[in-house]
């Protein structure tokens, strides 16, 4: 009974956080950034009507800063919640994130997909996406490798996703016992909440594989 209510609380906290993150991301993208874009268009219009060179240059600088800000806000919005998840699906969202990840950490990610992609519910695809994200961040932090692979295998009733690196690996028992495994536990919890499974295997000097299996609701 106690365990069940603990799981429900955990599920509620994760869902509330995700909803709030999504709300903030959409607000940044659809409201704040649209306003900034309108302001930038106005600044460009004002700039074209200014005759004094100093003031004209100043308006141009302001317009450049506004352009940078629009880009920052757009990237922040995508970092918080990838809109492609609802529009183009999980594989496209992971591919897009993998590109951003390579640009950030210099680690090349090979994304492979076998079988026809099936439609997942929003919570399912978001959970799978967050696990991929967490696994990649762990690679950047600890694996000491310059490449990794994400493989999707779409079956009729489930999808399997493997995030594999050939980095330095670690002793799983030691990490679990040391209490430094909160990220790993969070990946497992996210999958459990949507009816999936998450397994991790690692071998010293050989690398780490995070494997998730998610049932597909017909």
């Amino acid at each position: 009974m106690e365990l069940e209510s603990g799981n429900q609380a955990c599920s509620y906290i994760i869902q509330s956080q995700e909803e709030e993150i999504k709300r903030a991301a959409l607000e940044l993208h659809e409201s704040i950034n649209q306003n900034l874009y309108t302001l930038q268009t106005g600044l460009n219009f004002i700039e074209s009507g200014i005759e004094q060179p100093e003031l004209r240059n100043y308006a141009k600088e302001m317009s450049g800063l506004m352009e940078r800000t629009i880009r920052e806000v757009r990237l922040l919005s995508v970092e918080l919640y990838p809109n492609t998840l609802s529009t183009l699906g999980l594989t496209a969202a992971v591919k897009s994130y993998a590109k951003l990840f390579t640009n950030t950490f210099g680690i090349l990610i090979d994304v492979e997909s076998q079988g026809g992609e099936k439609l997942l519910s929003d919570p399912e695809s978001l959970a799978a996406f967050r696990v991929c994200q967490e696994a990649l961040i762990n690679i950047a932090k600890y694996a000491d490798t310059d490449k990794a692979k994400i493989a999707f295998t779409w079956g009729e009733f489930s999808v399997k996703i493997e995030i594999k690196d050939t980095g330095k690996g670690f002793d799983t028992n030691e990490v679990m016992e040391s209490g430094r495994s909160m990220g790993i536990a969070a990946m497992g919890e996210r999958m459990r909440l949507v009816g999936g499974q998450c397994n991790l295997s690692s071998e010293l000097d050989k690398g780490t594989t995070v494997s998730i299996v998610l049932p597909i609701q017909s």
Partner: peptide, 13 residues
């Protein structure tokens, strides 16, 4: 130690 620096692009700031 590797070629990661060649692929890193950081944003202004």
């Amino acid at each position: 130690r590797n070629d990661k620096h060649k692929y890193i692009t950081v944003r202004y700031g």
